[in-house]
Design a protein around this nucleic acid. Structure first.
Lengths: 237, 237
DNA sequence: CTAATAGTGTCTATTAGACATTATGTG
DNA sequence: CACATAATGTCTAATAGACACTATTAG
């Protein structure tokens, strides 16, 4: 219906260009809080506001969207997070005043300590507690993206142990339960939480323990495919 | 890090263009079979092969991606399906020989009879049984898209009644169970299936019945928010 | 010893699976 | 009546919630 002009078929380049970006909501868990990484915009539009790490896809260097997203994350954190999953794509006429714009958004998780140590000392990137995000001026529609990413993570906390990727490689069950509780927004039964994980055999006992106060806790690490495992029965919200 | 050239900041238009498309895997259920709508490509590349309904986003006319997807679907079926959900976005250097290309893919569901009656008589669009898809020459990476859409629908069949959107507005519980069984790929317990739906109060008794052979079945329709409801406990695969 | 935290035992409640049984239509 | 399909009754099995209990460290 749109193909009327050229007889040799249709020339895609006759369309005005679309601005194509990738953005990533990178979460981590530190000192009992869920944090998201923000970077300060140094260019128009929305200069000076905070935004998710991301930017334009570079067709000359990026092989794929995943590639582009990983590159943006590596530029900000120094490493590629162990969990990167496509969240959704937003594209419309009005989200960027430079033109019709589209962003492919990713959710990513990483251990706090694995990030470039620079992050906390550099002024153009910072971790923000998810509950303080309302006080931050965010660029574009990134507030919506963060909200959606958080909602998806909450769902995953109900039926998987994906949130473990926001912890160090070795972690304790109380730590894992804690991040699930923060995501779900309610206290969980210790017994239920542990039972299902142990029954599904998702974690490997490292033989090490961590002690802070009271009885030392066993340090576990994830088994190979545990990130993809889903329980048939969810925890209750 | 990429912003080095222009002093006034960064010009997105200095990047080579990305081809931006939307594609939709539209499913329906008819005579016990899950069908997907394919259209024959009339242009290069992949001319003559079958593809998902879709095409280039038109920044001058499409307000948003959802808008573009709905437009493409309306062009092929005459109506906008009652269920359209973003599936995923694929973008890379090699999927389209015309250049770096990106497609935002949607999963859609519709009642078979609600489509333009033309579909079955027109040669450039046809419903294909999902199990016969291996025998069809498909354009681009659309085979992957269909596989992913199907997998996601299967998951939804395990924890929701979203598949009901592939049925007419009024449908019977045996019909709904049938499409769930096809998606999940296994027979379900009638009692379990009905019990959970009735307990969650997802359907409305229309007072009508449908009879084919044996006892007439009650015709139901979906309640307002039933499509978003999720059971806490899944059916087993 | 107490305080603190990790981890277990065990009972109940919910709900899916299995499968027999009853209900309601046609011819 | 027989047949076909719809719908229900009822038992079992699996597993999450609740919460009391035991275990292991520090001081």
């Amino acid at each position: 219906m749109n193909e009327k002009a050229s007889p040799t078929g249709f020339d895609p380049k006759s369309y005005p260009p679309v601005l194509v970006m990738v953005d990533a909501a990178l979460f981590t868990f530190h000192e009992g809080r869920l944090l998201v990484l923000l970077v300060k915009r140094s260019n128009h539009p929305d200069m000076g506001k905070w935004s998710l790490p991301g930017g334009f896809v570079d067709p000359e260097h990026d092989i794929s969207l995943e590639d582009a997203a990983q590159r943006k994350l590596r530029e900000k954190t120094g490493v590629v997070p162990p969990y990167v999953e496509q969240l959704m794509t937003i594209g419309n006429r009005d989200r960027d005043k430079r033109g019709w714009s589209l962003t492919v958004c990713y959710t990513a998780l990483i251990a706090h300590q694995k990030c470039a140590p620079g992050i906390d000392t550099v002024s153009d990137a910072r971790w923000v507690g998810i509950d303080e995000i309302d006080d931050v001026e965010l660029a574009f529609d990134h507030r919506d993206v963060i909200a959606q990413a958080r909602e998806r993570l909450k769902q995953k906390a109900l039926y998987s142990i994906v949130p473990a990727y926001a912890l160090p490689e070795k972690f304790t069950l109380p730590e894992l339960q804690r991040i699930h509780e923060v995501l779900i927004g309610k206290a969980l039964q210790k017994k239920s939480f542990r039972r299902r994980i142990q029954q599904a055999d998702l974690l490997l006992d490292t033989g090490l323990k961590r002690q802070e106060a009271g009885r030392p806790a066993v340090l576990y690490k994830m088994r190979a495919r545990s990130g993809r495992f889903t329980f048939v029965r969810n925890l209750e919200e």
